[in-house]
Design a protein around this nucleic acid. Sequence first.
DNA 1: TTTATTTACGTAAACGTTTACGAATAAAGG
DNA 2: CCTTTATTCGTAAACGTTTACGTAAATAAA
Lengths: 334, 334
Amino acid sequence: MGEINIKQLASELNLSAATVSRALRDSHEISAETKARVMEMAKKLNYEPNPFASSLRHQKSNTIAVIVPEVANNFFSLAIKGIEEVARAKDHHVLIYQTHESGELESSFMTRLLSGRVDGVLISPASHVASKDYFQKVSEKIPMVFFDRDHDDIEGVKITTDDYESAYSATQHLLEAGCKRIGFLAALDTLTTGKKRMQGYIDALKDNGLTAEPELIVTQCENNEPCRSKIRYFIARQKPDGILSSIEELALPCYYVCKELNLNIPKDLKVITYSNLSHAELLNPSLSTINQPAFEIGTEAATILFKMFSKRWYDPNITISLKSNIIKRESTQA
Amino acid sequence: MGEINIKQLASELNLSAATVSRALRDSHEISAETKARVMEMAKKLNYEPNPFASSLRHQKSNTIAVIVPEVANNFFSLAIKGIEEVARAKDHHVLIYQTHESGELESSFMTRLLSGRVDGVLISPASHVASKDYFQKVSEKIPMVFFDRDHDDIEGVKITTDDYESAYSATQHLLEAGCKRIGFLAALDTLTTGKKRMQGYIDALKDNGLTAEPELIVTQCENNEPCRSKIRYFIARQKPDGILSSIEELALPCYYVCKELNLNIPKDLKVITYSNLSHAELLNPSLSTINQPAFEIGTEAATILFKMFSKRWYDPNITISLKSNIIKRESTQA
DNA sequence: TTTATTTACGTAAACGTTTACGAATAAAGG
DNA sequence: CCTTTATTCGTAAACGTTTACGTAAATAAA
């Protein structure tokens, strides 16, 4: 580990470790002259204080944890970017954990964070839920903020987007583009996020005199290979003329499937999806998206976490909703 | 921080802290009966050992650092995914740092890691270089692996891809598709990575009886807004009929620019680029890519780092090159 | 001058673990 | 029976920092 410690540095200067420690933290108890001597020698010897000793003594880690389903995801990588930048400004370190949508893994990460390894947690929960006890347990001990995803039966500080409204608007948009038979590719249906998106879809249909038929809602279709064939079967069988996808990973397979089935987007099937694809405009056809402010969600969540650290945040149970941006492109053209 | 510590746990059991510690680590010095009692009570009281005390004592952190230019990037997020998975399997924690291509930031991160905060470092260096001393300084103290990017004048363990060969092949591919005037969008030219890509381009031209004309090489064009206008000017002025881009971020602007200039890809201009875009196939036209095995680079780099930890790796100066995959699509069709 | 206050530093304890060393008991060997 | 060895556990020191407390000298107030 680190080479030189504060005692060696102190003896080099004929000072006590206490004085050196205080000098380095610019304490008023130390003379300017001594401070200068200490600083110089510290730089000369490349002294770096041992963070574990420091954390042990202070009972704080200057570290936060970010728990996400996946890093390699347009939304989460952007959110993490935002989080890291805020943490950097606050001189904190960022630990990353991937759950791969597993509740068990998530539970294991969370409970192990109770050791004091981090001062706070930013989490976007896994969709496959085992137990939920650990959320409560952790948030009782250390500040915690949900971002993007959350459970409606868990209290906490939550940064989300306008999932209901955006799904409603997107459905409305499909209807206005002439769709009569709109399919919904569900995901995250164990989470508030997914439920709201579905409810927005259902209500928009209802408000337009239509009913959401169960056979038009595709569920249990996560990110793996059977997914595409399930979608192919759905499109071939149900012949929807519009699709609202609740995650990017389900929308892009539609493009491939339409090629296979010789269907034209948007003539035969219009597609709109939640997505943070930065180049949706370059797709063929360009893809209409519900774009979530991923970066801002990250910065906002992190900012609030730091406010919780400094007790400048008092509401333990609040949901802050940021606006998504619906961008209409060729894939939903009338 | 953590609520209960080992002393309280011990007193609860009428044992000494030492015994509890040993029991938890399954030491042979402790009777099976006692171990069981300890385990049970530890679970009951949700005991989590304080990692800082443990790290302080052991002089190891069970943590690795990943330093990258950006997290929100198709390549790096995939690499990080791979790294995290390997670290998970080894029960290590992963700290993330973004340099935003700044050498100063990178330097600051690196030198502060000398405190012992991490047992090893995985780094993909920033393109804007300040000094390079810190690479040497860090790698002398703790295991360090370069991935994807590196400096040719710095020794070390490096996981890269076949940059020279892939650039050569891509250029060859453009030539075979009929290009006579191939532009090169340079990036990372301070790094071995970028230099090799350019050399591959130059040599491929030379081997085909052509010379790389300076006005066909666009440099100093990083990821920001002036970038697109620079590319627009380049295409309008130099009228290349083929472009090899050394990073994804420079290739996609070509698509936008060609729309603006009413140029047809691939008829008027063929484009191929280094990229980890997962849906290059869906672009209009579908984009020919040099696909780097980002995930594998991540896992390979991490695996080697762990071998260095356990002294099962002896070569301090070696470059391991993984093969990139050139995927020819519509954007380079003859 | 004496006393009170300020300045500048040192001593030692504490943070929570781990582990070298030692000790007590039990089992085994003679 | 005594001695040796194995088993099981406790004591105390150590990891490197920080900080409450103490103290000596210098300065100010009386």
